[in-house]
Design a protein around this nucleic acid. Structure first.
Length: 590
RNA sequence: GCCCUGUUAGCUCAGUGGAUAGAGCGUCUGCCUCCGGAGCAGAAGGCCGUAGGUUCAAGUCCUACACAGGGCACCA
């Protein structure tokens, strides 16, 4: 099988924004650095060099929009009280037009409150950016590959795969929004023992269906889907294979069943909106080229030439301990077979040969013991630090509080497809992405089935739908009208809304939340932590609902109405972007 | 035995070395002549697993220990 590249790949290139957008944080940092430098030059502060200026958002809104601890950090070196140092710096930034207030607080924090006009500008900025709102440039257009799911093609997707699908897809979207050129890849483990067992299992069921006796070993795949595949073969091709040579039969069944499972995986993944740019077949790594050598051979050769390979006890070893692993690892067993690890080395070598600056693998916690050797291999191949391996804790499936044991072998399982049917793709994705990858996930089917309002995805989607409803109301459209929210908003608001009238505390809280979005994108992309997005979206929804309760948007006051429409439109856009990065829909009505 | 991840409100979980540790659910009390009540406001609820250490400052970093889950193959 050839490496398959799906058609119509869309790689979104990083947008080059016409104007140089500097986020508020960077602007403030420069401002404070200048203030410290001036204080030093004026002889107020005795420091040898400019300290690093850290800015943070205080937890307590009473402390302003931003705070810096620069005075606390430099006090010792400057041999002065942190508060006095802070006062000296604060006095030099207080006059900036974007700053409403500066105060020294606590042990020596400098708290900064932005002016209303500075905040109001974010509404314009978000609406102007449109789908590019929140875009960052961490990647500088470098190429990153995210490999995830990568299931053995020997059975249906299970719930754990669903978590990796949601996680990988969202992480990829996040990285793309943060300025990386991203490719999504699925590694098909279609070589090796699992496939043989798979074929034997199908063959045995086929024979049984034709009324013959067939041994079925305990360690084979017991799942009902095996019989299903066997029945399909029987229906399509008849019982001609019953009397065929067992080796021929198994080899034929293997390919038929493999194709079916692969189609199933693709279909389920598409059903939840996940599309891979590349499906990479492990088999291709074992195919011999004109010189009679496979990619696996060449991978080992490369390591050998670099001096990292040796022979011992009849096996071929990789000296992974030279790169921080606990023990050396076997590449080729004494029986002449390659280990799975050897193929994985060839695979990662192939990835880097394709020119990725960075490669991210998403694995379940059950593979964490593999991390050290894989990173060692990447380093030995000349790519230290370019491989990130994200370890996600496992999913435990519960049914009404009782653990459902899942095993491909015994066939006792609830497939991910069933779960998607029951709870819907949006809720399933949101549920998966809300928890940190370091946290094990309990997925209770009974609970998820209830479709209860407890699910925060509805809270967020409802906020979006509510905004669309306001837009419909303002445009005089019926409640059930289909509309392009952005177009409707554009016509209603016009080119120059008077945002200066947005001064109500809840309006400013909502603006601040909207303004935070680019920081969240950057932080989530930097830490490979999509779970920050749902939490942000819920905060944004809370800010919007509070605003909605206090402030009526559509009133007789034309100026205020237009300004508030602009604000809710900026919020709508932010919901839409945040949900898009999660792969969750933003419905215009529910 | 060794390695990884976790341990924060009754439950499920957030928390870039900073100020009085947050949210949802659950419990209790209020709010619909009004753009969607799938909403909002308020109350109660905490020795951040334990013990040391680093720091001006520790839920956050370091070291032990306890508990939970997952790994420790010439398996895939």
């Amino acid at each position: 099988m050839e490496t398959k590249r799906s058609g119509g790949i869309v790689i979104r290139l990083p947008a080059t924004l016409a104007q140089e957008t500097r986020c508020m944080k960077d602007t403030l940092r420069t401002l404070i650095e200048d203030a410290v430098r001036e204080s030093m030059e004026a002889g107020q502060v005795a420091l040898d060099e400019l300290p690093e200026v850290e800015l943070e958002r205080p937890k307590d809104p009473a402390h302003g929009d931003w705070a810096t601890n620069v005075a606390l950090r430099s006090a010792k070196a400057a041999r002065m009280s942190p508060r006095v140092l802070a006062e000296a710096v604060a006095a030099r930034i207080a006059d900036h037009p974007d700053i409403a207030a500066v105060e020294v607080a606590g042990p020596g924090f400098i708290n900064i409150r932005l002016s209303e006009s500075a905040l109001q500008r974010f509404v314009t900025e978000a609406r102007k950016a449109g789908v590019d709102w929140g875009r960052a440039d961490l990647g500088h257009g470098r190429r990153v590959q995210v490999e995830f799911v990568s299931a053995n093609p020997v059975g249906p997707m299970h719930v754990g795969h669903g978590r990796w699908a949601a996680l990988g897809d969202s992480m990829a979207a996040l990285l793309a929004h943060a300025g990386w050129r991203v490719e999504r890849e699925f590694y098909i483990n279609d070589a090796g023992v699992q496939m043989e067992i798979f074929a034997k299992s199908v063959a045995a069921r086929y024979l049984q269906l034709t009324g013959r006796d067939a041994t079925f070993a305990d360690e084979w795949y017991q799942g009902a889907y095996i019989t299903g595949i066997a029945r399909e073969i029987l229906d399509a091709e008849g019982d001609v294979w019953a009397e065929a040579d067992p080796a021929d039969r198994e080899s034929h069944f293997k390919e038929v069943a493999y194709a079916q499972v692969l189609a199933h995986l693709d279909q389920v993944l598409r059903g939840m909106g996940v599309r891979f740019d590349v499906w990479f077949s492990e088999r291709t790594l074992h195919e011999k080229d004109a010189d009679g050598r496979s990619a696996v051979d060449r991978g080992i050769d490369e390591l050998r030439e670099a001096g990292h390979v040796y022979e011992a006890d009849g096996a071929t070893w990789f000296r992974s301990t030279a790169f921080g692993d606990d023990k050396d690892r076997v590449l080729r067993k004494a029986d002449g077979e390659f280990t799975y690890f050897a193929a994985d080395i060839a695979y990662h070598r192939d990835k880097f040969e394709r020119g990725f600056d960075r490669v991210i693998d998403i694995w379940g916690a059950d593979h964490h013991g593999y991390v050290a050797r894989m990173k060692a291999a990447a380093a030995a191949l000349g790519h230290p630090g370019q491989l990130d391996i994200v370890i996600g804790q496992l999913v435990t499936l519960l049914r009404n509080g009782e653990v459902v044991r899942m095993s491909k072998r015994t066939g006792e399982m609830v497939t991910f497809e069933e779960l998607l049917d029951e709870v819907g793709a949006d809720a399933a994705r949101y549920f998966f992405l809300r928890r940190s990858t370091d946290q094990p996930l309990d997925f209770d089917i009974g609970l998820a089935k209830q479709r209860s309002n407890d699910n925060p995805v509805y809270y967020v989607q409802y906020a979006h739908a509510r905004i669309c409803s306001i837009l419909r109301k303002a445009a005089g459209l019926p409640l059930d009208a289909d509309m392009g929210a952005a177009d409707v908003a554009g016509k209603l608001i016009g080119a120059d809304p008077q945002l200066a009238v947005l001064t109500d505390p809840v309006e400013l809280v909502l603006i601040r939340k909207v303004a935070e979005f680019p920081e969240i994108v950057e932080e989530a992309a930097l830490t490979l932590a999509p779970h920050k997005l749902p939490h942000y979206a819920e905060d944004l929804a809370a800010a919007f609902h509070q605003f909605y309760t206090v402030c009526r948007v559509v009133t007789d006051d034309k100026t205020l109405t237009t300004a508030r429409l602009a604000l809710v439109d900026a919020a709508r856009l932010t919901f839409e972007r945040a949900l898009a990065l999660l792969g969750v829909g933003a419905p215009e009505r529910m």
